[in-house]
């Protein structure tokens, strides 16, 4: 009994010692890992350019992208038209700049809606111990059996090929991935003690799902969102290449590749430039997604 206070004193020192090491702020650590790789920095810069282009398109574009005859049809690249003109005499550079708007708009809207629906379904499936889990997950399995582009193609074809319908189509095609990842993560989170503690404190399922499960599922999902943005932009390009999506005067990169293809021999830039834009944007989202993954959680490296 006599050595009681001494033990307490020792424990107290240990506790103090453990608190002692200075904590690097999360944000600093994030920045260091994220910007630690050259490729990620390049990707971020490309994305920044694409975003700025999309936002300031009307000010950046030298000509009206929809107005035919600002130059002669099929002009070669020159000082007046840096990327030449298309078969209707529209300035290709201006169309490329406005195409960034279409790509970013379609990509962002479809990915974010898909993420919200997918995460909700995934958390509900993962958290539930009843029939909701197999039901939701089998539905997701079924949707996953359709190749993305095929599903989007069929949906867009059924609903009609407007830009809104392309967004709907891509959203449906992207939902299952989120649901799967969210479900998997929820299955592990729900076993943690703090979830049990919260339940013992009398909180309801919805509160626990929103307050405890969602924040823990979120970081990896953010990585997925970034990667999916690249995939969505690629898919949109594929659809518009096939002629489904934005209506004629509008500018979409995929459609520009397809239109320029006929004049490949005389003016390859018409088709090459928009293709390069698609690839660089996809590449940048992938790089940034990878950087995020390493920064958010090094253990997830190579898993998503």
């Amino acid at each position: 009994m006599s050595d009681g206070p001494a033990v307490i004193g020792k424990a107290a020192t240990v506790a103090n010692f453990q608190e002692a090491p200075p904590r690097i702020s999360e944000w600093k650590r994030f920045r260091r890992v994220f910007f630690g790789r050259g490729m990620v920095v390049v990707g971020s810069l490309i994305l920044l350019c694409v975003f700025l282009t999309a936002i300031f398109a009307p000010w950046l574009a030298p000509y009206d992208p929809y107005k035919p005859g600002v130059g002669n049809p099929l002009e070669k690249p020159s000082k007046r038209h840096l990327l030449g003109t298309d078969n209707l005499g529209r300035d290709q550079l201006s169309r490329l700049i406005f195409g960034a708007r279409t790509a970013i708009l379609v990509g962002f809207v479809s990915v974010i809606i898909a993420a919200v629906i997918g995460i909700t379904l995934g958390i509900a499936a993962g958290y539930s111990r009843g029939p909701a889990n197999p039901l939701i997950m089998r539905l997701m399995d079924a949707l996953m059996c359709f190749p993305n582009i095929l599903l989007a193609l069929v949906i867009a074809a059924i609903l009609g090929g407007s830009i809104v319908n392309v967004i709907v189509a891509l959203t449906v095609a992207l939902i299952p991935t989120y649901a799967r990842v969210a479900c998997g993560l929820t299955l592990s989170v729900r076993e943690y003690d703090y979830v049990l503690a919260s339940r013992l404190m009398g909180f309801g399922n919805f509160y626990i799902m929103f307050r405890h499960v969602l924040p823990n599922v979120f970081p990896p999902i953010m990585v997925l969102v970034t990667l999916q943005l690249g995939a969505a932009i690629l898919a949109e390009a594929g659809l518009s290449f096939l002629g489904i999506g934005i209506e004629p005067p509008g500018a979409a990169w995929g459609a520009m590749v397809s239109d320029g293809y006929q004049y490949m021999m005389s003016n390859p830039v018409l088709s090459l430039a928009p293709g390069l834009a698609i690839m660089l944007t996809g590449f940048a989202f992938n790089m940034v997604g990878d950087g995020l993954r390493d920064a958010v959680d090094p253990r997830l490296r190579g898993l998503l």
């Binding site: 690629l234 390009a237 594929g238 290449f241 390859p268 088709s271 698609i278 590449f283 992938n286």
Partner: peptide, 25 residues
């Protein structure tokens, strides 16, 4: 490693067009 990133993001239809242009035309 950089090539694999390009391979994942290159649009298949555009790659096709470039290949046709270079190797066929």
């Amino acid at each position: 490693s950089p090539l694999t990133y390009i391979g994942v993001t290159i649009p298949a239809f555009w790659l096709g067009i470039i290949l046709i242009y270079v190797f066929a035309q």
